[in-house]
Design a protein around this nucleic acid. Structure first.
Lengths: 209, 209
DNA sequence: TCTACAATACTGGCGGGTCGGTTTTGAGGA
DNA sequence: TCCTCAAAACCGACCCGCCAGTATTGTAGA
């Protein structure tokens, strides 16, 4: 009896990922995916139940991988919040560099392709970051008044750099810079809040549009 | 068909924006846009040459608006780099809050909807930020080794917050927090580079995947 | 009456999904 | 080791609904 071939599934997935990263969802033809992967169109439906299912699997898989990777890295020993945050950043950047098309891929389809499993995974990641910052706040390493916003921003960094950064950027540089941005934002100290508020008020206080 | 009614054009655009923000490009039917806008389908083609053209115009217009708004705000008087940066952030966040669907809208279609005009506008914005940081570096206000990366990240912040931030977030809070993140990242001072590099190395130096 | 536009009918092709025929695989018997 | 057979993968031509884009008609206002 012929068995489903995991290699083939991966081949199809990889091919689809490449195409979805190149053009928007609605311009990717399953005929093309099949042709490019060197399989029959019908075979696609052996491994995936629909075009959307295929696309979703791609993203979901990537997310699961990062999170799994992160958790295995962090769960190992007991790290300080600061060290943990650095690990997270390094790991995320590494993952991005290892999967350079991932962020293009995520742009292929738009909002609300149903399913919340995707959203769940995303939140998992953000929460992981947020908790780390909160831990740092408690331990005195950090003093971030809005861990939830900062946590939200970190993946945004990644995205920006991976999507729009010049090709010349190397991984180390990116890690250092993002670490710098986040860590300083997160730490307490200079740049008093009073000062912040005054200046921000100046910048904000204008006529509404 | 003769006199192009700008009001109607705006009406169509606004309606389309609403729909594109709700579901992916390929699930938005022009019949729906026409119906919802209360115009005939044919009329759409008076104002836009195709579905893609319509979508494209939406994004392009928004970008042009932000940039124009920014430049008018900044060109006025002579501001320090620091003040300028704060203005930029405040302005961007304001724009985001004024156009809450913008970021969802930008997700509707994916990469490479041809045309580079879009990309040009985006770069214009990033360059504006980058130049401000460089100016601050020169004047001694800032000391950012990678203005190009930081500049890239700022819009990424925006996106993250607008797309995924909880509804409860208010504009002021977001401005303050983003300002905090960026400004601290950008300033020189504590958190010596030596220290950074050592710790980052610790976080990075692991087995490759 | 004439203009402009909403409404709506129409068409063409495009692409997601299917289905029946074909090939591959591996288990079990000798 | 080899043969047999059935289950399931594989294929790709085809089907069919959908929708962008166009042409036609009806109507309200001037």
């Amino acid at each position: 009896m012929q068995r489903p071939d995991e290699k083939k599934r991966q081949l199809i997935a990889a091919t689809a990922a490449k195409l979805f990263a190149t053009r928007p969802f609605h311009k990717v033809k399953l005929d093309d995916v099949a042709a490019e992967a060197g399989v029959g169109k019908g075979t696609l439906y052996v491994y995936f139940k629909s075009k959307e299912d295929l696309y979703f699997w791609l993203i979901y898989d990537a997310f699961s991988q990062v999170i799994e990777q992160l958790e295995s890295q962090l769960g190992r020993g007991e790290l300080s919040a600061s060290q943990t945050l650095r690990r997270i950043i390094a790991e995320l950047v590494k993952f991005g560099f290892d999967n350079p098309q991932l962020f293009e891929l995520m742009r292929s389809a738009g909002p609300r392709i149903k399913d919340e499993r995707w959203e769940t995974k995303r939140k998992e990641l953000v929460t992981l970051i947020e908790k780390t910052i909160r831990r740092g706040n408690k331990s005195g390493e950090f003093d971030d008044p809005h861990p939830e916003i900062t946590a939200l921003c970190l993946p945004g960094f990644m995205r920006s750099v991976m999507l729009f950064g010049s090709r010349g950027l190397d991984e180390r540089t990116v890690v250092v810079q993002i670490t710098r941005l986040v860590e300083r934002g997160v730490c307490g100290g200079e740049g008093s809040d009073k000062n912040d508020k005054r200046n921000v008020a100046v910048a904000t206080g204008r006529n509404g549009r």
